[in-house]
């Protein structure tokens, strides 16, 4: 495993997130503090409604916090505009979702290279080469040109892992990545995540309800009532 660097990858301080306004306002994150070091593979646990997904979305720059400090790779992201956040997300963050993971009209390879192609405006030969390597890494070299809709659930998640790795991100956020898979496929995906974490040194934050998944991570964070406990 790659040893963690001294400087943290992510730092959250006093982070709050409130949905709605006035009497209907609901505070989901209540002054949350979090430090995430590089190269770690951490499980994020918590009951439904505890703020797990909200935290993951804020870390993925898909959702804006209401207040607090949010620093990643030394860059203050709180209050950054949409273009800055989109570019930052593209370069430094990868996602693996539980549902709706792949673009259905694209092949496995096209899905994998999407993050690079959308930034460069073209599907370069270099991107295709890396995409093919990543598909090989996730054991799907023989499914390169298969439409996403022709892949099984487990294969889709492995393609999603490959896509998350495409731009060599510093952080991969996985929200219930095995929640929709049978136990064999789920274990395959977890094995893959472990390999990537160890080989590439990529930081993983894996949101899960499953204790068996959490047990395979090297660390765990639990969120309750909007705070890390």
């Amino acid at each position: 495993m790659t040893p963690p660097d001294a400087a943290p990858l992510v730092e959250l301080r006093g982070l709050t997130k409130t949905y709605g306004e006035g009497e209907t306002a609901t505070m989901v994150l209540k002054g949350l503090d979090l430090t995430l070091e590089k190269g770690r593979m951490i499980a994020l646990l918590g009951a439904s409604g505890s703020g797990k997904s909200t935290l993951l979305n804020i870390l993925g720059t898909l959702l804006r916090p209401t207040a607090g400090r949010f620093t990643m790779l030394g860059q203050e992201l709180f209050g950054a505009d949409d273009a800055t956040l989109t570019d930052f997300r593209n370069r430094h963050i990868g996602f693996v979702f539980q549902f709706h993971n792949l673009l259905p009209d694209f092949s496995a390879l096209e899905n994998v290279i999407f993050p690079t192609a959308v930034r460069e405006g073209v599907e370069s030969a270099q991107a295709r080469l890396r995409g093919a390597e990543l598909l090989e890494l996730v054991g799907l070299a023989d499914r390169t040109h298969y439409r996403a809709t022709k892949l099984s659930g487990g294969q889709k998640q492995r393609v999603a892992v490959a896509r998350a790795l495409m731009n060599k991100p510093d952080l991969i956020l996985a929200d219930e990545p095995t929640g929709n898979l049978d136990s064999v496929s789920a274990q395959q995906v977890m094995e893959l995540i472990k390999v990537v974490n160890q080989r590439e040194g990529t930081t993983f934050l894996i949101s899960t309800h499953d204790e068996r998944i959490a047990a395979q991570c090297e660390g765990r964070l639990e969120i309750r009532d909007g705070r890390i406990i």
Binding site: T86, D87, P115
Partner: peptide, 16 residues
Amino acid sequence: RPEIGIMRAMGASQGF
């Protein structure tokens, strides 16, 4: 909508 969400998450800008 879900695809648009995925594309935005992968770094597609609003302009794209």
